[in-house]
């Protein structure tokens, strides 16, 4: 059971209140029609899946109904930080497996 800090409610809340919403920091291309299938497919389907620090989006479904960002360690499940969508996570220097 994760304890997740909601940066809008400013409290640690139980995981049950939240919905995981995928990897954070995926930039939607400004002009999708300009991209070839490979580049569009890369945006659509490919994610980093790191061992270690992972930027995630969570949705406070049973709370303030806001999306926000979380830095979670995929090995220890430790949550290092969370922030609003318009803020930046303090990204550590991590080895992302190729």
């Amino acid at each position: 059971m994760l304890r997740i800090h909601c940066p809008y409610c400013c409290e640690d809340r139980a995981e049950e209140e939240f919905v995981y919403a995928g990897e954070a920091g995926i930039t939607r291309p400004l002009a999708p029609e300009q991209l070839d299938d490979a580049a569009w497919g890369d945006y659509l389907f490919f994610r980093t899946n790191p061992r270690g620090a992972h930027q995630e989006m969570w949705f406070h479904a049973s709370g303030c109904r806001r999306y926000f960002k979380v830095l979670r360690d995929t090995v220890t499940y430790a949550l290092a930080a969370s922030c609003r969508m318009d803020e930046s996570l303090p990204l550590p220097a991590v080895d992302v497996l190729p």
Binding site: V19, A21, R28, F59, A61, R65, R66, Y67, M85, D86
Partner: peptide, 13 residues
């Protein structure tokens, strides 16, 4: 509703 909020909050704030 969650889908609409996602786009509104993350892409078109």
């Amino acid at each position: 509703l969650r889908w609409m909020e996602l786009w509104l909050q993350t892409e078109w704030p």
